[in-house]
Design a protein around this nucleic acid. Structure first.
Lengths: 291, 291
DNA sequence: ATCAGGTATGCCTTTTGCGCATCGAACGAT
DNA sequence: ATCGTTCGATGCGCAAAAGGCATACCTGAT
């Protein structure tokens, strides 16, 4: 197999039109350059240059090979740059999993920051509930998850990235609206409660359950719905009230009013960013600096 | 600049998953392979493999670089084959010039043989009169010409490739048809003669002129036409008779009859293949073996 | 015929690369 | 917890390769 240095030498001779001139350009003397090119010719098995007393000119095969050599050298150089870029994390892929809640809060701003700051990093976004995210992280199928945390399983590291309280969504004209925008959990427990499906929206389901359990209250569940949007629709239709993350209150529906709940914990809904500490994806490390 | 051998080593390690295994595959020992790969990493400026107690696995940058390396090696190999093919004349380009006469006789069979036998050789065909062909050959603009020859200018070599006589084209019912298919030059000189334009069909013009000059006859020229087809059309229209190369007689026009001319030289029309003896295009050398 | 400009060759030195022997690290088995 | 096994890394010596210098050789121009 020939050497890239031999290609450099050959290209220089072909471009300069002489061995002596090319040797000068390459900061070397002419004899080793001659030997270099001859070695290349022996390897390729073809005479690439015709030498005459006044320089050297490429043969037809040499002209074709010159083209190939230039392309090869350019490619060799760009492959180095590309590898460096991947190592620096400015090129590559980050596979991100997110939950319904995180999609509303941290995912959007983060993803738009990433596409702006790391334009050559591809993002693969998949919605998963927390448990699925943990499995996928351990299996190496995703690089990072936005989930309830912190997961305490060994190779996983978690960092809180957002927390918010919950507010009460009620239909317009509901009796609780008379409380002037502030209710308590016992008020909530007195009414039918639309809540989340344990499977598809497990985090919110468990968060709501925990809130009432801690307050020693037993709400009256009337529905289990997967999507936050669906919850609001049912509330608007008058089927009950619902606790939703505060960020959801930014969605204004004509038939739904939001009330503060006084005795709900401030950071009831938390989003953690979870990844494997032994993940060697440099694009992940880079992406984590933007969250 | 790194070495293609280093790439081979790196690819082998990445594929085998271990330095020792790769060294075995490459028929070398493990220490120099380790050093090879490390040198490559130092050159690229990136850690390509993570070594652990049970082999080595590529980093994300290493996976990307592995792809590049494989492509690079494949390209390096194919560039050798390509150069060899060009040198052997089975790949490349042959620029062929031809005259109107040669187009009817040798060009067609030769070109079809070439496209069949040398499918990777591109043919560039250009119609030129003999003088233009000589200029183009000397200027290096074409590789070979099919022309009247032989040219005696120094770097040019010529080889006769076809010769033919001329026949007389007359309109149907012309008085000369009563001669039962055989006329003489003096018969021809007694009738208006459609002949060739000296500029665009110089060879045939001069050939016809020479035929009559040698016979001490002065024909009555009535037209100077560039194309053989046009000559036949004018003959068919009754404007005169014409001498055309025998091969033209294969074109049957409803209103034209061909007569043999008894005292016309057998090899009046000759086609030579002309090229520069110092032309180093291997595809030309190859192509010349098929004419 | 000689000269000039460029390439090939001989010879020496330096550098590079390989192989052998060995060390060190890290898991698995006991 | 310790030992053993299995990797990769390292030190060393030798051989091959590559570079530089001096020079021979070739060929068109003067």
């Amino acid at each position: 197999m020939y050497t890239l240095d031999q290609l450099v030498g050959f290209v220089a001779v072909a471009e300069e039109g002489s061995f002596a001139g090319a040797a000068d350009r390459l900061s070397m003397t002419q004899p080793p350059l001659s030997r270099q090119v001859r070695k290349l010719e022996r390897d390729v098995g073809v005479e690439l240059l015709v030498r005459h007393h006044r320089g050297a000119r490429p043969t037809p095969a040499g002209r074709v090979f010159l083209d190939e050599a230039r392309r090869l050298l350019a490619r060799a150089e760009s492959s180095r740059l590309r590898a460096r870029s991947v190592a620096a994390g400015t090129t590559g892929t980050v596979r991100i999993a997110f939950t319904a809640v995180s999609a509303l809060t941290v995912l959007g701003p983060w993803a738009s920051t990433l596409t702006e700051q790391l334009p050559d990093v591809d993002l693969i976004l998949t919605e998963m509930v927390t448990g699925e995210q943990v499995d996928a992280l351990l299996a190496g199928e995703i690089d990072v998850g936005l989930a309830r945390g912190p997961a305490r399983i060994h190779p996983l590291t978690a960092r809180p990235v957002a927390s918010e309280s919950m507010v009460l969504a009620v239909p317009n004209g509901h009796p609780l609206t008379r409380l002037r925008g502030a209710a308590t959990l016992s008020d909530v427990a007195a009414h039918p409660l639309v809540t989340y499906a344990p499977a598809a929206a497990r985090y919110l389901y468990e968060t709501v359950a925990a809130v009432f359990r801690d307050a020693d209250l037993t709400p009256h569940y009337v529905q289990h719905v997967a999507q936050v949007n669906s919850v609001l629709a049912l509330v608007g239709a008058g089927l009950g009230v619902a606790l939703v993350p505060s960020s959801v209150a930014t969605l204004h529906l004509p038939s739904v009013t939001y009330l503060e709940v006084l005795d709900i914990p401030d950071h009831a809904v938390q989003v953690h960013c979870v990844w494997r500490s032994d993940n060697d994806n440099p694009a992940l490390a880079r992406a984590l600096t933007f969250i």
